[in-house]
Design a protein around this nucleic acid. Structure first.
Length: 229
DNA sequence: GCGACAG
DNA sequence: ATCTTGTCGC
């Protein structure tokens, strides 16, 4: 059996150095603390690429814990950065911020597609967005970026720790949202803690692998994709 | 030096 | 992320 992994064009060393420094600076502003108040509105943020040079970001706002859709907005524009593992936020965050500005309702917390603290420099896109908007945020990713973890039990609701192999530090939690289906990776971003992030992700699941906020954002992207053409 | 690598 | 057919399981 031969396994292949996607080939990533070599990233410009100078660019990587600049962005790394920027993430380390943002890390100084990151605050991981319990949510001040229970959320009334939770947002789901997701970006897609209708064409290789066009980015489409969608944000949905749901009432919590009912999970009823309250609002949905989108923003699209030209792609300005290549995808480089570890620097996803610089490619997607700007357009997400543009979409956020269109919201009529202000969400209490943001669920972002991708990692938050579970990042090489603890600055995944979820943390990045939270700091830029000064909003509580956390990430829900479908694949691991960094860290190791044991397999959570097969039953929905089971969790397992995602830790740094070197230091043992807790980076996030692996959450089985659906029976016998690949789990998702939850990690805090900004102004929230791990337990709250995991609890929110779990309380937002409705029988699908992805929690409603990000699942619906992804769903509406298909609809908005038609509007921009 | 050898792998790993969100979306 | 995106492309893309058949296939497996509830």
């Amino acid at each position: 059996m031969a396994y292949y992994r996607p080939y990533h064009p070599p990233a410009d060393p100078e660019l990587v150095r600049t962005l790394t420094q920027q993430q380390n600076e943002m890390r100084q502003r990151q605050r991981l603390e319990p949510l001040a108040h229970p959320p009334r509105l939770i947002a789901g943020l997701d970006s897609s690429f209708p064409t290789e040079d066009t980015i489409l970001s969608v944000i949905v706002v749901l009432r919590f814990p009912e999970l009823e859709l309250v609002e949905k907005v989108y923003s699209h524009g030209p792609v300005t950065m290549p995808y480089v593992p570890g620097f996803l936020s610089f490619r997607e965050a700007p357009n997400l911020v543009q979409a956020f500005a269109k919201l009529q309702h202000q969400p209490d917390v943001l669920m972002v597609d991708g990692h938050g603290y579970a990042h090489p420099r603890r600055m995944g896109i979820a943390a990045h967005i939270g700091i830029l908007l000064d909003k509580p945020s956390f990430g829900v990713a479908k694949q691991v970026l960094t860290g190791q973890h044991p397999e959570p039990e097969a039953e929905a609701g089971s969790t397992a720790p995602l830790t740094d192999k070197k230091t043992g530090e807790l980076l996030g939690e692996v959450l089985r949202t659906k029976n016998r289906v690949k789990p998702v990776f939850v990690s805090p971003g900004h102004r929230i803690d791990q337990d709250t992030a995991t609890a929110l992700a779990w309380h937002c699941t409705r029988g699908y692998k992805l929690p409603e906020p990000t699942r619906l954002a992804d769903h509406w992207a298909e609809q908005f994709k038609q509007e921009i053409r």
